[in-house]
């Protein structure tokens, strides 16, 4: 495995680009920071042309308008988090008796730290703990949506979205749909 991890390790300051995992059966493209050369002006979220927002350092981030309406990625991340991560990390990133609250972790972890842990996994087997963060770098259901999950958790971490389902969201951008289809394979 670990094309993703290699890239994360070799290019820790990568701003934008597309990472493709060539596997025997399919090609997995995780879309990292697709927005590309976003202007690093002030303010937390800069809109890209495809409904995705970036922060001052060019990392993906959320956008929430005054009525609580979120960008599509935050909403999509909410769904994917609750399908792929919540069985260990608890509802809404709140933590469980088994795994840490990612809501708090993201106060500490950078975007690249986050990608690295998710792709490579981590083990903590000391002192009667039996904690294993699985290696998810080859899991399309995670990696095709890893920015979405990051963006959602970032919003949770900043208390920008409440627990539960975001009440309203922007429409699904075409770029997102295209990226999903190329990453997951076209709908059957």
């Amino acid at each position: 495995m670990s094309v993703v991890t290699d890239i994360v390790e070799k290019h820790p300051n990568r701003r934008a680009g597309k990472v493709c995992l060539a596997l025997s059966v399919f090609t997995l493209c995780a879309v990292f920071g697709l927005v590309g050369a976003a202007k690093a002006d002030s303010g937390p979220a800069t809109p890209g042309e495809d409904g995705k927002y970036t922060d001052a350092s060019g990392d993906p981030t959320y956008n929430i308008d005054k009525d609580g309406k979120t960008d599509w990625y935050t909403y999509s991340g909410f769904r994917r988090y609750h399908s792929e991560c919540h069985v260990c990390h608890g509802p809404d990133g709140m933590g469980s008796s088994y795994a840490p609250p990612l809501k708090d972790s993201l106060k500490r972890l950078s975007y690249t730290d986050f990608l690295a842990v998710v792709a490579q996994g981590r083990k903590n087997l000391e002192n009667g703990q039996e904690k294993v963060m699985p290696e998810l770098g080859l899991n399309k259901n995670v990696m095709c949506y890893i920015d979405d999950i990051y963006i959602y958790l970032k919003a949770r971490s900043d208390d920008a979205v409440a627990r539960g389902r975001p009440p309203d969201h922007e429409a699904k951008p075409k770029a997102w749909q295209d990226a999903q289809d190329s990453c997951m394979g076209a709908p059957s």
Binding site: G90, G95, S96, P101
Partner: peptide
């Protein structure tokens, strides 16, 4: 020895998704 599904789902408490914006825990 708490854990299982209950330790995951209930550790942080359930939120009411229909309680409206901003309802926490």
């Amino acid at each position: 020895g708490v854990g299982g599904w209950a330790g995951i789902g209930l550790a942080a408490g359930l939120a009411d998704p229909h309680a409206g914006l901003g309802a926490v825990g």
